[in-house]
Structure formats: C-alpha cells, structure tokens
C-alpha cells in the first residue's frame, strides 16, 4: 500500500513513472495540512492560502523528477511553501503600494474579516501582532512557535544561518510581547 511507503520510496515511484499520480497524491495527502497551515499563517486568508498551496504542489509536481534525495522531502516542501508565500506577499505589497493603500490597514482588515475574529481574545491579539512583523521574521516565528521546528531544519528551509534565525526569533518574540502588553 502506497500510504505506508516512506518518502524516498514515493519519490522513486514518481521518478520511475510507476504509479506516478498515486505516489504524488500520497505525498500531497501526507503533507497538505502542515503545508497549508504554514502558508495560511503567512497569508491569513483561506482563499489566498488555497491559491498558494496549489502553486506549491504544482511546483512540486514539476520539480520532483529533479529532487535530490540527500535532502528531506518535507524540508523541500516547506521551503517551496515559504518561498511561494513570501512571493505572494511581495506581489500583494506591490499592488497595495500602487493603489496607495496602507499595508498595516490591509493586514488588519484581513484579520477582521476572518470568521470568529475577536480582538480581545489573546489568540487573535497574537495573530495581529504576528502580522505586524516583517514577512521573513513572521516565517521564522511561525516555524519555531507553531511548528516547533529545530533551528537546524529551519536553517535548511529558510536558507539562513542558525545564529541569524535565533536572533530573528528573539526579536520577533520581543516585538510580539511589546504589542501584547500595550494593546
């Protein structure tokens, strides 16, 4: 059964065109939730997260033949997800700049539009504070705080040194603390 096969086996089946689609679907099913939440925490809206996630897995489909198995499949998936999310946010920022909208206002608007939003609740306040961080710092905080990812793996995902990641996480937590205590 394919769902019992490990990642390397699935990649091999995909590359050798043996049950290619089934192997790929198994990979999608295995990692879609983790990838989705990583994207969603960065882009906030579900529709945006859905668009980005489709782009991520299309890239995986197109690139899996060239995937080097010395890296972990999950790390590679996360890297694509973070890069796609950051590209999406960058494009969105450009659109906002062109239309002279306030970026922080648009982020707040997105959160307010979320179902069940209550700014008095700590978890929403936390989300608001996270959205005020710079994009890459937001990715660092999310991977560490929500995914509990070791710095070494984060370093592979974000292609940044462990020292820089620790510093970035420290700054992110301090900024969030400041927001929580003053709002």
């Amino acid at each position: 059964m394919l769902h019992q096969a490990d990642d390397n086996e699935l990649v091999r089946l995909f590359k050798q065109h043996i049950d290619r689609e089934k192997a790929f679907t198994t990979i999608v099913k295995r990692y879609q939730e983790k990838v989705y939440w990583q994207i969603r925490r960065l882009v906030v809206s579900h529709d945006d997260a859905d668009d980005v996630m489709q782009q991520v897995f299309i890239k995986v489909w197109n690139g899996l033949d060239h995937f080097r198995e010395d890296a972990k499949l999950f790390t590679w998936l996360y890297r694509i997800a973070v890069n796609e999310s950051l590209s999406f946010l960058e494009q969105q920022k450009k659109r906002t700049t062109v239309s002279f909208e306030d970026i922080s206002a648009s982020v707040e608007q997105k959160l307010i539009q979320e179902k069940g939003f209550d700014e008095k609740e700590a978890m929403w306040k936390l989300q608001k504070a996270i959205q005020l961080l710079p994009e890459k710092q937001r990715a660092v905080f999310n991977l560490r705080y929500f995914e509990e990812m070791p710095y070494e793996q984060m370093s592979e995902v974000l292609e940044t040194s462990v020292g820089a990641l620790k510093a970035s996480y420290h700054h992110a937590v301090k900024k969030i603390e400041d927001y929580i205590l003053h709002h």
Binding site: R40, H46, D50, Y145, F146, I180
Partner: peptide, 21 residues
C-alpha cells in the same frame, strides 16, 4: 525571552471550509 508570550495560548484561530483537505 518573554514570559508574557510564553503564557499565551498558541492556537491558530483561523477557520477552514469543511472537507477542504
């Protein structure tokens, strides 16, 4: 780093459509 942030409930409050996955 921060006791205040450590005390927060680290849940993600976002909702997703049923059967999305």
């Amino acid at each position: 780093i921060s006791q205040a942030v450590a005390n927060l409930d680290g849940k993600t409050p976002f909702a997703i459509p049923a059967d999305y996955f």
